[in-house]
């Protein structure tokens, strides 16, 4: 069984796994980090979004062999000051309903705000439209991103 090296939430690890197992299932079933969710397995719902070398990716469609040597951040590792401010905006606006998609939403939003600290509504819409929310929390997500952007700037 091949072995792969990963940095996950700042910790260096190696995992032995079948080369084609998607990162999602390494994270969930092998590393026990269940904050990252399975929603579609096809990269179309965004529930599994993590950061790979700083960029948001759909972990359900990235095989471990293509992730070798990469640095991954999951929702559990989103602990920098600015990232916590994003989570606080989510809490303040009581964003989640069922909550299942929210880790993916926050991961995508956090990456957006790093690259674009002052996103317009259209930019938020375009970026966040890769993440599905079945309960319909979209307008609160949008407000939370704007609130977090404002709080981070101050």
């Amino acid at each position: 069984m091949p072995s792969y090296k990963l940095t996950i939430n700042s910790e260096s690890i190696s995992v032995e796994a079948s080369p084609d197992i998607p990162l999602l299932w390494v994270i969930r079933d092998m590393l026990g980090l269940t904050g990252t969710k399975y929603g579609c397995g096809k990269g179309v719902c965004g529930a599994c979004t993590v950061h790979f070398n700083g960029s948001p990716i759909k972990s359900c469609t990235m095989a471990i062999e293509n992730a070798d040597g990469g640095a991954i951040t999951t929702i559990e590792g989103l602990v920098k000051e600015k990232e916590i401010m994003i989570k606080e905006a989510w809490i303040q606006l009581d964003v989640p309903q069922c909550g299942y998609c929210q880790a993916g939403q926050i991961m995508n939003a956090a990456a957006l705000l790093v690259n674009n600290p002052n996103p317009s509504n259209v930019e938020i819409d375009n970026t966040m439209s890769s993440n599905l929310c079945r309960c319909g929390t979209y307008s609160r997500i949008k407000q939370a991103i704007s609130l977090a952007a404002k709080n981070i700037k101050q």
Partner: peptide
């Protein structure tokens, strides 16, 4: 806010 909101945003 929802009872579980903090755990939800922390992925716990």
């Amino acid at each position: 806010p929802q009872t579980d909101v903090k755990d939800i945003v922390n992925g716990t």
